[in-house]
Amino acid sequence: MPNSAPDPIADAPPPPTDSVGRRLLAAVPFGVVLFGTWLVLSPKRDLFHLGLGAATAAAVALLTARLVAQPPSLSAPHTGHTSLRQMPWLRFVGYLPWLAWQVVVAGLEVTYTVLHPRLPISPRIVRITAPLPHTLAKLTLANSITLTPGTVTLDVEGDTFLVHALTEDGSRDLQGGAMSDRVSSLFTAGDDSPGT
């Protein structure tokens, strides 16, 4: 995101371009989603509260229109084929239960390590390289590493992931590359998926 807009939180009006109309149009679905969220969260159905919700949703949608309208830096600069709409959502949904299970395993392992009387840790910093097609895939891998047992992603530069591992097992699993393969297949084979 930082490389797309120089100052994304500035509330100054966006510079006038010929795509202003399209940008406002793109803000409409987002505003509808926001208002739906308001309806879920606010049980009061009188005119005042509904009006407040509508005004808030409209204001937020308009203020963030610039960010919503441009497909953010999730797209790959060199291939340019990935937007959120073209993502293999079905496969992504299949990835989630595995990830949730990994979160539980991670919690148990850290709990075990921490409560162990001898505190059996051997922390280290590991670099792994995973050639992934675009930023969204890198983001997914980085977050998955953080959520799985014994490892936390510290930094990403290019294809290199800087990871802190709490135990030797964690770093060995990571260098086995099972997770980067999983994330990689999640995204790279997605060209034939529906929605393109």
Binding site: V103, G107, V110, T146, L147, G150, V152, L166
Partner: peptide, 8 residues
Amino acid sequence: HAMGKCDT
């Protein structure tokens, strides 16, 4: 590690 995992 303790923060990010156990707390979540």
